[in-house]
Design a protein around this nucleic acid. Structure first.
Lengths: 145, 145
DNA sequence: CTATGTGCAAATCTTTTGCAGGCTA
DNA sequence: TAGCCTGCAAAAGATTTGCACATAG
């Protein structure tokens, strides 16, 4: 689960600041650090709480694991991220909030984006009476051939 | 998470016995009990380990929780069931092994089958170089309207 | 100033494991 | 009989919580 994260330069922080502001999330020191790691380079990223926690530590930021969890949840609630569930014992968080499919590499437990536009539904069922579709998760599990 | 399970009459046990035999799974008392609860009435079922454990207890069978986990895993390995992941903190096991879509009711955390044939892919990406698609999980998350 | 956010450690919950004894083929 | 199964209790992880303190607006 080795992931690369954005650096903490000024431009990256600006991007993070705008990202938080866009969703009216109060920019505390910890949130700004984490947001910078997440979107500082403008790329989407898939993280686990543990992975982000370690990245924060590695970059010299002091953030507690509980706060990482709270923060990721807060970002999800604010619509800045999505939680994707592929493994019963670990949550993955995606900075890309569009409803898009994922590859899950069964050997490395890595989660990556499936090439966009390559998946399309020919048909989706009408949501049952009294319900509406909140999201459609598509996870393509890959096995090393 | 209230689920209904099959009764333990003779016909149900026969069905369970055949189910195990088909996959060459050694029919121990515990496995037969659990299998009867799972497929005794010929219907497919989605269970959690905890739910099945409680059902076993309720039906008077004595099976330890660890064994329920082992058994569900064994059934999956034997191709009798599938594990579906929708919630990061709980595994769901489905007696229907076909690759089919599910509804996940966000309010009750219930997992049900989506009407079969109602979901179709227009396009799926070619698996990346050196990999093959092991399975495609489609989970349609529903919100009570 | 006040509502929110944070850290820490402990609690909780699901799932796994080690090992002694049991049971199927 | 031999090897696979099971139960139990304890371990292992991931995530959440309670509460006192800090801080953004």
């Amino acid at each position: 689960m080795n992931q690369t994260f954005a650096s903490l330069d000024e431009q990256a922080q600006d991007r993070a600041t705008r990202w938080l502001a866009r969703a009216h999330v109060r920019p505390t020191r910890q949130r700004l650090s984490l947001a910078t790691l997440l979107v500082g380079d403008g790329h989407d990223r898939h993280v686990t709480a543990e992975g982000l926690f370690m990245a924060a530590k590695a970059s010299g930021e002091s953030v507690s694991l509980a706060t990482v969890y709270n923060t990721l949840r807060a970002f999800c609630a604010a619509g800045l991220m999505n939680e994707i569930t592929v493994d019963a014992t670990r949550s993955y968080f995606d900075t890309c909030v569009e409803d898009h499919p994922h590859y899950f590499w069964e050997d490395t437990q890595e989660l990556t984006d499936a090439p966009s536009g390559e998946v399309a539904f020919a048909r989706l069922p009408d949501p049952p009476e009294g319900s509406e579709i909140s999201r459609v998760d598509v996870v393509i599990r890959l096995r090393r051939a």
